[in-house]
Nucleic acid binder design. Structure first.
Lengths: 209, 209
DNA sequence: AGGGGACAATAACGATGTTGTGGAAAGATG
DNA sequence: CATCTTTCCACAACATCGTTATTGTCCCCT
């Protein structure tokens, strides 16, 4: 019942409440007044801490990128580099589906406008480099076409991002269908190295559900 | 100087003006009052014709899907089925870059909420079927893995959509880089059929700029 | 103890989406 | 021709929104 978790760190509470409201009721339900009331403060807190509503949502999106980075970093390396790429893809999808509104908000505008601080951009770049290194490992294992790793990583990211976006948008596909498409996507990228298709297919199993 | 093109068809004028405002100044600049003033009518026109602002934007997005369908339908079939797929991809990208705000608005929410009329959904499905048929032709020519054509089409669509979305969002890449990624994407999908990679690569040339 | 600075409560301003009321114009109906 | 109905829009009002100005309060520092 107590409104404030503590008088300390109103800033974090505002971010959390905005994220919660965004998750529960969508972007058009987020208003400065509702957020401030829920936190137990006044609208002024938003302006002293962030400067305005856009910056508040910017902070929430930045937190979303942090979370995405953590989820991708949590993917464990195995001895199958291609399966690891598929695991990245699933982690990406999982993050997006965990909070679709946040995911949409994150990419609703150029990320350069969302991640403005140098450390934010550095961390986003590091997240991308995690993907690049995964691609590099798959290339070293002879499981991927030997092209520029960053371009291949961009290609993989694009495909996964597109699939997830379309799943969130077109909503026509089942969970199983999305998982299959995700696996097929990595598989189709992987078989270019001249490996046996069966080997590649086996390395990207479709999870149960 | 005359505000109204004609007293007829205020509805079309409202859609056009909303699209223009969206294109010129972005989504947050679109207000019912500004649109109505520019058309030379009052805000009530929006409510009699559409029911509210969301439905007005919905109509604009629906028009955007129409336009996307036309651009994809305009792609000419050649004797190189894979090159045709690449042409689809470029047409998709061209449409998105022609009006980024509209493109973002189109996929800002589930398409099932944007295209509500049965004929709208039918036309969207037809647009997707154009892609499926292109994939089918590439498979028949032995240039593509023989899997379910609609799944392969979804995969291709996802990859292209993702690449375009990330280009509009992350803005980090040059035009040439985007074209290269688009071509590489189709190429990587195409070489699965056991064709010579050079052959496949040659069929997807990188356009000049 | 006192002063300064960070923070927020209150109230106000302009703009927004929406609704209610009414009226004008067009077509149908007698 | 008169009238009724329907469609459409102008005008004004209302609630809510983001934002700002003003004021007060609390806390830290010297």
């Amino acid at each position: 019942m107590s409104a404030e978790p503590a008088a300390t760190d109103v800033r974090a509470a505002l971010i959390a409440e905005t994220a919660r409201l965004l998750y529960d009721a969508g972007p058009e339900a987020v208003s400065v007044r509702k957020v401030a009331d829920a936190v137990g403060t006044s609208t002024m807190a938003v302006y002293t801490h962030f400067g305005g509503k856009p910056e508040l949502l910017r902070a929430v999106c930045s937190e979303g990128f942090h979370q995405l980075g953590r989820h991708l970093a949590r993917v464990r390396r195995t001895d199958d580099a291609v399966a690891d790429l598929a695991a990245f893809a699933r982690a990406y999808r999982r993050t997006a589906r965990a909070d679709p509104h946040l995911f949409r908000a994150m990419f609703a505008r150029p990320v350069g406008e969302v991640l403005v601080e140098p450390d934010e951009q550095a961390q986003a770049l590091e997240t991308f480099l995690v993907l690049v290194r995964g691609v590099q490992r798959a290339m070293d294992a002879g499981r991927l076409d030997r092209v520029a790793p960053d371009e291949m990583a961009l290609e993989l990211w694009s495909a996964v991002h597109g699939l997830v976006s379309i799943e969130l948008g077109a909503g026509v596909q089942s969970n199983r269908q999305a998982e299959r498409a995700l696996a097929a996507l990595v598989r189709h990228l992987a078989i270019g190295a001249g490996d046996a298709p069966d080997r590649a297919a086996a390395s990207v199993p479709v999870p149960g559900r």
